[in-house]
Design a protein around this nucleic acid. Sequence first.
DNA 1: CTCAATTTGTAACACTTGTTACATTTCTTT
DNA 2: AAAGAAATGTAACAAGTGTTACAAATTGAG
Lengths: 222, 222
Amino acid sequence: MYSKISETPIFKGISSDEISNILNSTHHQIKTYEAEAIIAFSGDECNNLFVLIEGSIRGEAIDYNEKIIKIEDVFAPDTFAEAFLFADQNNLLINIVANTKSKILIIHKEDLLVLFQSNKKILENYLNIISNRFVLVTKKLKFLSLRTIKAKLASHFIELSKKSKNNTIFFGKTQAELADYFGVTRPSLARTIKEMKDEGIIEVPGKMIRIIDYNKLKKLIE
Amino acid sequence: MYSKISETPIFKGISSDEISNILNSTHHQIKTYEAEAIIAFSGDECNNLFVLIEGSIRGEAIDYNEKIIKIEDVFAPDTFAEAFLFADQNNLLINIVANTKSKILIIHKEDLLVLFQSNKKILENYLNIISNRFVLVTKKLKFLSLRTIKAKLASHFIELSKKSKNNTIFFGKTQAELADYFGVTRPSLARTIKEMKDEGIIEVPGKMIRIIDYNKLKKLIE
DNA sequence: CTCAATTTGTAACACTTGTTACATTTCTTT
DNA sequence: AAAGAAATGTAACAAGTGTTACAAATTGAG
């Protein structure tokens, strides 16, 4: 079990022996949930760090019309709901439900603070996790605030082209997946890609995207 | 100066005397910038915490077409750019420019980590700041992902109504400001408000909004 | 290789929002 | 109280996206 815990982002770089010592001197709980058990409710105060040791959980949002929307799956070994812990408004925005039988290490926020003070590595790991999550959300926010599909596509292609060669991007997702990521419909995305082809901005050989006119592409953003 | 520092969120609840002690035993810099001086460039690695003691700074984004867009102003006493510090990808996404002559306390991330370990209050404050920022951005993201203006307005009204009485909301902003916050144009927002009036969902007496049909309002949110 | 499933291309039409323009109302200042 | 500024109401039209439907192409399993 300790080796599983050492694979979670927050205990990364800490040996199983150390984890054993840490848990001996830190107040904590280990709980097991059956499949489909509700681990925490939307609206609950979140005062504990959850470390998923075994199994898989999902987050479910409930919209104003009581419709359930699956947000994301988390698979062991990982942590979840960690970013709300120290916020003033620390109520969960989603239900946490076990997908499969799951074992979870639970550490209260006060105990976690004590742990942070005695173990620099865990503190660094935690700061790293929530900072990365913040950067991710901020980038997504910036992206979503682009008005048109063309602008989003252009921004996406430019970002990908930074990490690739020959101005050629490998199109790793299906159009349906990309459309979903963009928050638009699949036919609309396809239409936009076609327009960019027609305008001579890109070529689409097979599963690749080749950028022909980088300047035109940049002008599409904003 | 120490009393100014004690008013920043990260040194909140710490006396001037304590701050004096802390700074004596913590490696740091205090720099002064003239108005319009560039404090940090977009793309720079961000390895320092910036504590604004005097003056005011602004963040400026530069889009793909080299156009400058003002993001936000920060006024002393406060901190800024703190959420990127411990992220893997810790490059600034904006330029930081002094609006007025400004005095800034700069603490390197390594020194800050040491400080976190010796001072629980500062650690708590920092976790609180970035967590709150994360919650804010997450909510904004959720909000932006609502498709129509009507859905955004409905969500906004419902959130506000939770904090008010009689189903009556005080409309604190002008339509132009609200439209900007929503990322839509002012005439479009006005049209949507009119539609909601015509549909008998709300009444708009003066600067107030009164919710008439709460159920219809909820159904507008996707 | 073949057939079924998946993915992609495309079109017509409806809906939502942006754009522009101007009238009307409300607020501010003198 | 009057004049000017700011905010709001409204309309016509353009642009962009969603919806629905179906055909064509590609992929995967047997």
